[in-house]
């Protein structure tokens, strides 16, 4: 029986011999293709590169870094010797309550000009025994008393000089990347240490008045805080304008850090 020729599907036995051979050839080729065949050259299609991430806008971290870099730039020409009144990023200096890896930005002491009075007094006291050789003030005392008196006089001179020096040397104001610390030794028996975080600073005021302060560029810095200590006073320190700029940058850095914390 002849099958319809217009069938969509053609069964293999419906085809003629030629058609069947063609079908068989195609079947064989299909079988061959299932076998391992040599790799055919494949046209390389240019892969579309993934779009590179766009340069992100300046992150908050880079903003913080810019504040810090500005501080470093402001401090780059400042002195770093241990006896200086304005120590910028000291390498040797440290303090008792310092945290690990806490960077010290600035250490301040009273300007050297404030020490002039006791230096002059020391020089005068050193010269007094020489003056007494010519002026017979102690002639009423025996000679051995004169010698002990002179020794005691030099002892007193050394004590006054040493006490004034260590009072200047150990009274420091420290600015770190996290906080401010004011260490005051008013006399040998009284110590006062104040500390406040930079984020708690509300206002920084500088005052600079008088001939000597204007000539030698030193003044006082008053720091209003929201902590237990309402105000920290840093008196007669050099470069008060520069200190104000540094505080502006450090507070900006803290504000950026706080903003980043809120966003997260």
């Amino acid at each position: 029986m002849n099958r319809a020729k217009d069938l969509d599907t053609i069964a293999p036995d419906d085809l003629s011999v030629e058609a069947s051979s063609a079908v068989e050839a195609s079947a064989k080729s299909a079988a061959k293709s299932d076998q391992i065949s040599p790799p055919k050259p494949v046209k390389k299609i240019a892969k579309k590169k993934k779009p590179s991430p766009q340069t992100s806008p300046p992150t908050s971290l880079s903003k913080q870094a810019s504040y810090r870099q500005t501080v470093y730039r402001l401090l780059q020409n400042q002195t770093k010797t241990s006896f200086s009144s304005f120590l910028a990023r000291p390498k040797v200096f440290s303090f008792d309550s310092r945290h690990n890896e806490e960077e010290i930005i600035l250490v301040l002491r009273r300007h050297w000009f404030t020490n002039l009075s006791w230096i002059i007094i020391t020089i005068v006291m050193l010269l007094v025994p020489i003056f007494l050789k010519n002026v017979p003030l102690l002639d009423f005392l025996p000679q051995n008393y004169n010698f002990v008196f002179v020794a005691f006089w030099y002892l007193i001179t050394f004590a006054i000089t040493f006490e004034k020096f260590i009072s200047w040397y150990f009274n420091v104001f420290i600015l770190t990347e996290e906080r401010v610390i004011d260490i005051d030794f008013d006399n040998l028996l009284y110590k006062n240490i104040s500390e406040a975080k930079i984020s708690m600073i509300q206002d920084v005021t500088i005052t600079q008045g008088g001939v000597s302060q204007t000539l030698f560029n030193y003044g006082s810095v008053y720091i209003q805080t929201a902590s237990e200590v309402p105000q920290i006073e840093v008196l007669k320190v050099p470069n008060p304008n520069l200190i104000l700029k540094i505080f502006q940058q450090m507070r900006g850095e803290e504000e950026q850090e706080a903003l980043e914390g809120r966003i997260k």
Binding site: F83, V92, D96, F170, I183, F185
Partner: peptide
């Protein structure tokens, strides 16, 4: 009395040195 004062100076320099560590 001055000897006692000198002892206090030694003690206070020691206390100050504990608070602030510097080269000198």
């Amino acid at each position: 009395v001055y000897f006692i004062f000198a002892l206090i100076v030694v003690k206070q320099v020691s206390v100050m040195s504990q608070n602030i560590h510097d080269l000198y």
